[in-house]
Design a protein around this nucleic acid. Structure first.
Length: 417
RNA sequence: GUGGCUGUAGCUCAACUGGUAGAGCUCCGGACUGUGGAUCCGGCGGUCGUGGGUUCAAAUCCCAUCAGCCACCCCA
C-alpha cells in the first residue's frame, strides 16, 4: 500500500518547519487585521466553473469532480479564492465594514502530473481582502508576501508585477492581440494556436523560441491600459516604492485564473526548477459580482506550503523538534508504578516528559533519554523505592541528586526554569 | 495529458558478461550485574516496486503496470 499518486504524508519530522511557516504567516496576517476562515474541502462544481473560468486549465482538465449520492456535482477545491468569495456572499459580509480581510490555510486538489513541488493535494496559505479597490491594498498584499518570505529566509526570491487591465481596456486589447496573432499564426506552435483561440493572453507563457520571436512585436496589455487602470497601476507601484521591494515589470505575466483584473503578481524562487512559482495573486474586481454578490472590488494572494518548504530546504533551513525536558527511567514493578505517578505530575506542570514503553534495559533507557535530548533523567529502581527518593540526573553534567518522590516534580520544574 | 530517467533492508547505496542478495547508518542486545553521548562485538530486518515472459537459472534480459524524479504543460 502506498499513498495515492501525487499525495504524501507529513511526518512528525516534517511538522516543525511547516508549523514555523504557518506561524509566521499567521503572525503577519493577524497583525495586518486578517481573520482566519476555513471553507469546505469540496464545493458545488459550478462555483469553480463560474469563478475560476472555463478557459482555465484547472477547470478544463484538473478538477477532482464527483457526484455524491444525492446526485450533486461536487469538486474538491482546486483554489482558495472562489470559496472565500462564496462565503463572503453567503454570509452577507458586504454589510460588514469594508474591506473584509480573510486568510486561510487549506488543502487544494488538482489532477496534475506530479513532480517535486507539484502535488495532486497541496496546502496553500492565502489571504483575500474583499470590498476595496484601493491600490494601497494591492501593495499591502505584495508586501505581506515579501515579509513572509523574508522573515522565513526563503532564498533567491523574485517578484514579477503586471496589470491585466479591466473590462474597459482588456477586451479591446484582446481583440488587437488576436488580430496580431492571426497575422503570425503560421509561426506559432500548435499549443499557441489553441491558446490564441481560447485565451490569447496566455501565448506569452510559451517557452518555444519561435513563438517568443514571433511575439516580439506583439502589443502588450501593460502598454494598452485604459486611463483608470493605468492610474491604479501607477499608484500600486508608488505605494511599493518606499519599501524598496525590487520587482520585474512583466507585461507577459498572466495568471491561470480568468478572474484577475488590474494588478497581478507572482513570486518565484530561482532555485526551484520548473515549479518555481512559490506564490502569486492579484486583484479580482468582478468575481464577487460574477458569483452573485454585489459589485465589489477585491484582491488576494496564495502561496504554496510545499514550495516554501522546498525553497527553505534548499537553503539548509529546517525546523527543529521541541526537546524533551525529562525522561523517566524505571525498572521493577513498584518502581514503574511510582514512575508513572511522577511522570503524570511532571507533565501536569507543563514540562515535556517521556518514558520507556519498550522494555528497555536501564542502559537502553539512558540511551533513549540521550537520544531525545532530555535535560534531566529521573531514575527510579529498587533502591529509590526503598528510600522514597528519586535519582535525578543532569544529562549534561552527569550530576545526580536524590529527591523525595512527593516533591520531585516541583523540584524539577524549578531546576529547569 | 506528452517525452525521458530511476525503483535492491526503515535510510544511503553495492552485487562482473544472467548463477539465486551485501555494506554503512538506524534500531535491539552484549562487553560495562541499575546509568547515555566514544569504541568493539553480536542480533533483528529484504515479496530485489508489482505482474507476466525468456532461460536449466533473473535483482540483472523483454513486456506491461505502479510510484518517484526531470522537462513539457500548468501552477502553489
Amino acid at each position: 500500500m502506498q499513498a495515492p499518486k501525487g499525495t504524501y504524508d507529513v511526518l512528525p519530522a516534517d511538522q516543525p518547519l511547516r508549523e514555523k511557516i504557518f506561524g509566521e504567516a499567521r503572525r503577519i496576517l493577524n497583525t495586518a487585521g486578517y481573520g482566519r476562515i476555513s471553507t469546505p474541502t469540496f464545493e458545488d462544481t459550478s462555483l469553480f466553473e463560474r469563478g475560476v473560468g472555463g478557459s482555465s486549465d484547472i477547470v478544463r482538465k484538473e478538477m477532482y469532480t464527483f457526484e455524491d449520492k444525492g446526485g450533486r456535482s461536487l469538486t474538491l477545491k482546486p483554489e482558495g479564492t472562489a470559496p472565500v468569495v462564496r462565503a463572503y456572499i453567503q454570509h452577507g459580509m458586504h454589510k460588514l465594514p469594508q474591506p473584509v480581510k480573510l486568510w486561510y490555510y487549506e488543502r487544494m486538489f488538482r489532477f496534475e502530473r506530479p513532480q517535486a513541488g507539484r502535488y495532486r493535494e497541496h496546502y496553500q496559505l492565502g489571504a483575500e481582502a474583499i470590498g476595496s479597490g484601493d491600490p494601497a491594498l494591492d501593495a499591502g498584499m505584495i508586501m505581506m508576501m515579501s515579509e513572509l518570505y523574508e522573515s522565513l529566509g526563503v532564498p533567491d526570491v523574485e517578484l514579477r508585477l503586471s496589470s491585466m487591465g479591466d473590462g474597459n481596456c482588456r477586451p479591446a486589447y484582446v481583440k488587437r492581440l488576436s488580430g496580431f496573432l492571426k497575422s503570425v499564426s503560421d509561426q506559432l506552435c500548435e499549443d499557441c494556436r489553441e491558446r490564441a483561440r481560447l485565451n490569447p493572453l496566455r501565448v506569452f507563457d510559451c517557452k518555444h523560441r519561435s513563438c517568443q520571436a514571433a511575439l516580439a512585436d506583439a502589443p502588450k496589455l501593460i502598454d494598452n491600459l485604459c486611463q483608470d487602470c493605468q492610474v491604479h497601476f501607477d499608484s500600486v507601484r508608488k505605494f511599493l516604492e518606499p519599501f524598496g521591494r525590487s520587482y520585474r515589470l512583466d507585461g507577459t505575466l498572466v495568471r491561470g485564473f480568468d478572474y484577475y483584473t488590474r494588478t497581478t503578481f507572482e513570486y518565484e524562487c530561482a532555485r526551484l526548477g520548473a515549479q518555481k512559482g512559490i506564490g502569486g495573486g492579484g486583484r479580482y474586481d468582478n468575481l464577487v459580482e460574477e458569483l452573485g454578490g454585489p459589485s465589489t472590488p477585491a484582491a488576494g494572494f496564495g502561496t504554496g506550503m510545499e514550495r516554501i518548504v522546498l525553497a527553505l530546504e534548499s537553503a539548509g533551513i529546517s525546523g527543529k523538534q521541541p526537546g524533551v525536558d525529562v525522561f523517566m527511567i524505571s525498572f521493577g514493578d513498584d518502581a514503574r508504578q511510582e514512575a508513572a505517578i511522577i511522570l503524570h505530575r511532571i507533565r501536569g506542570l507543563g514540562l515535556i516528559a517521556d518514558t520507556d514503553y519498550a522494555g528497555r534495559s536501564v542502559k537502553g533507557q539512558m540511551k533513549q533519554a540521550n537520544r531525545l535530548g532530555a535535560r534531566l533523567a529521573v531514575i527510579i529502581g529498587e533502591d529509590e523505592v526503598a528510600a522514597g527518593r528519586a535519582t535525578v540526573r543532569d544529562m549534561e553534567s552527569g550530576r545526580q541528586s536524590a529527591v523525595a518522590f512527593a516533591s520531585v516534580a516541583e523540584w524539577i520544574r524549578e531546576r529547569l526554569a
